[in-house]
């Protein structure tokens, strides 16, 4: 199975849509080689702006472009976008509902060797709490392409969470990608596994393992965290009665929390969350970190069994 990092797919998608949308501008904060906005920069140097190592001004300047009718895509690592520039995003992007796309790469533990200071495990939580903000987490290259194309058409603030590490392609090339949507990758009625980002692949692995034991797990790719696909969640709660969520993010405030909110208000059933357990990460190889912090298919299987 081919593996591509979502940040690679992002750079490629940007460069592709750059031709058909001449009002798109791209801003970066000295990380264009890593965020892959460099691919766009090479094609459209006049529409690319390096803002240097200054993430607050990165977002502020993007707001200026949006206020002038352009469609700015601003990129840096998730830590510095959602973290350092948070208040600019709150007050200058979301409050005036400006058309700024924040595409943050290097989210989660799979940043790897850079360690805990750079492994953002809070961004889903803090971005989804902002009024007017839409939050998307693509699972693979196909998902990323669809989401970036959608971002270019959608008018309003959007946060897209992208990863550093190469991940298997799990989504079809063509599917109906929509804000507030989700995608069923596996049918099943015994339990539903709802995952986002790199954990979608792990969820599929877990479903395979469960199948061997006669448990049919439904697997949903929850690429739209906010708004979230309430209909699919309620349907899963009703039809499968049990839900396990999986995300490369703190269990506090992330996908698991968003799912639990919908379930508890609409059709209460047990929900178990796989994610980091209110802790920072550390240096290491991405795969070793995922093992150590239990972001694995085995952990998903374990949580499912706890519910059976």
């Amino acid at each position: 199975m081919s593996k591509i990092a979502t940040r690679e797919a992002y750079g490629k998608a940007l460069a592709e849509i750059g031709g058909s949308y001449d009002n798109i501008v791209v801003l970066d904060a000295d990380l264009s080689g890593s965020t892959k906005t460099s691919v766009f920069a090479k094609e459209y140097p006049n529409r690319f702006f390096n803002m240097g190592i200054a993430e607050q001004n990165l977002i502020g300047a993007a707001c200026g472009f949006a206020a002038s009718g352009k469609v700015p895509f601003a990129s840096t690592f998730a830590m510095f976008a959602a973290g350092r520039a948070f208040e600019i995003i709150r007050n200058s992007v979301c409050y005036p509902k400006l058309n700024v796309k924040i595409c943050a790469t290097h989210a989660g533990l799979t940043v790897g060797e850079d360690g805990g200071s750079h492994q953002c495990l809070e961004d889903i939580s803090i971005m989804r709490t902002l009024p007017n903000m839409t939050v998307m987490v693509p699972a693979d290259a196909n998902d990323t392409k669809k989401i970036i194309e959608m971002a270019a058409d959608y008018v309003g603030p959007m946060y897209v969470r992208l990863g550093r590490a190469a991940v298997p392609v799990v989504m079809p090339e063509d599917f109906e990608c929509k804000i507030g949507g989700s995608y069923e990758l596996r049918e099943g009625n015994d339990v539903t596994i709802m995952a986002c980002g790199i954990m979608v692949d792990k969820a599929l692995e877990a479903a395979d393992k469960l199948k061997e034991e006669g448990i049919n797990a439904r697997v949903l790719n929850m690429y739209s965290i906010k708004p979230i696909d309430e209909e699919a969640i309620i349907k899963a709660a009703k039809e499968t009665g049990k839900i396990v969520t999986a995300e490369e993010h703190n269990v506090i405030g992330g996908l698991g929390a968003a799912v639990a909110e919908v379930v508890s208000e609409n059709h209460p059933v047990p929900v178990k969350r796989v994610g980091t357990l209110d802790t920072f990460g550390e240096s290491g190889k991405p795969d070793a970190l995922l093992e150590k912090y239990k972001l694995t298919s085995d952990e998903i299987v374990k949580k499912v069994k706890e519910l059976m």
């Binding site: 001004n57 502020g60 200026g64």
Partner: peptide, 22 residues
């Protein structure tokens, strides 16, 4: 531009000026 949280307005003004120049 909506402002109030100090410092951000200048940053946005720069972005508007960049857009105008571009």
């Amino acid at each position: 531009m909506s402002t109030g949280s100090l410092g951000q307005g200048l940053s946005v003004a720069c972005g508007i000026a960049m857009s105008s120049k571009m």
